[in-house]
Amino acid sequence: MSHKQARRIAKFIEPLRVEPGSRVDLAEDFDPRYKARLKKREGAELLRTGVGLLAEYQAKLAAQDTYGVLLCLQAIDAGGKDGTIRHVMSGVNPQGVHVSSFKVPSAEELDHDYLWRYAWRLPARGDIAIFNRSHYEEVLVVRVHPENLDRQRLPAEAQGRDVWARRYREINDWERYLCDNGFRVVKIFLNLSEEEQRTRFLKRLDRPEKNWKFSAADLRERERWDDYQHAFGEMLSATSTPWAPWYVVPADRKWFARICAAAVLVHTLMEIDPQYPVVGKKARKELRAAKRLLEQQAPEGAERDPYAAGRRG
């Protein structure tokens, strides 16, 4: 990637970044309908470019086998997480990308610390892991519904009013530990407006093939809109760090949200700058010997090296 491209991507995503240490009020600070003066017809080409860059960088990430990337996607119901994953990751090698969704914790998971089940799904070196909802559920859903905290059976000294401040600190420390060990944490919050959520819910009800995506629980959670907005703001304020900043992506326009998500992920890979391994002198000698042997095996009338001949042609 050219330096000019890199600077352009960094400038594009800068308005989405939550400055570490800042206080976030979603309603005041981030517009769900922001689109950076782009038009939808321009968006398709930009997304194709982003998907192509992701494929290129993912191949290098896997070949280098030194760094891993964790992408955390958070959003309120109907925020567009599934569609974002499907479109943004459409060009990458599926062997190197692993998606995990986290539902209600099982009895086994509740018998461990709250980060245990997320640690099991972290990426290996060379891989990209995507958390469709993530460990941040532990300071969002659990905060809005404190009865879930009771189910975790915390000891008395771990409870109290400071439990959320403590969890923010623990999550920040955990993410710093991952980054220090070569695993970059990319955090995207898809910022959906209340009216757009209403529209998307109605679409799920109006189209029979979408009915399965709707449940009565969605409406119950929608009634807690203000509680969730407060929890989101607190989360973004407390856990956007220099080593793992949050990006608030406007989600009312799906096409623009996907461009932004691709740009944030490309920017992270660009900073890692993975490279294909350099072959040493001994290995190059072995490769030349293998090439000569394969060329000698060419059938009569066939090119000794069809690939090289095709390139010359």
Rank of each mutant, 00 (worst) to 15 (best):
W225T: 05
A302P: 01
Y118L: 02
K4D: 14
H98D: 13
T241G: 01
K203T: 14
L202Q: 14
L202F: 13
Y177V: 09
K35F: 12
S101F: 07
Q275H: 13
R37G: 14
D113Y: 06
K60V: 06
S90K: 14
P123C: 11
D206A: 15
P155D: 07
D82G: 10
A262V: 06
K103L: 03
D206L: 15
R200I: 02
I76S: 00
S106I: 14
R311A: 03
Y67T: 05
T268K: 09
P299C: 07
V97E: 11
Y168T: 01
R220P: 00
E271I: 10
T66R: 11
R207M: 06
S237M: 00
A107T: 11
E19D: 07
A78Y: 01
Q95V: 08
G301T: 06
R166H: 09
V144A: 13
L140P: 04
V139Y: 06
E137N: 03
D173G: 01
N148P: 04
G126M: 04
V24F: 02
V264T: 08
L236A: 00
T199D: 08
R167G: 09
T199F: 10
N191Y: 04
T84Q: 01
F12D: 09
Q95K: 15
G79D: 03
R258Q: 13
V186R: 03
S106R: 11
D206I: 01
Y247R: 05
Q275N: 06
P250H: 06
L202W: 14
Y67C: 04
P155N: 00
R41H: 15
R204P: 00
L115P: 12
N191H: 15
D150H: 08
E138D: 15
M89H: 01
R37A: 15
V186A: 13
R161Q: 14
L154F: 11
E137G: 04
V249T: 05
V88H: 00
A262W: 09
C179D: 10
V163T: 04
L70T: 07
S237E: 08
V264P: 12
Y136D: 01
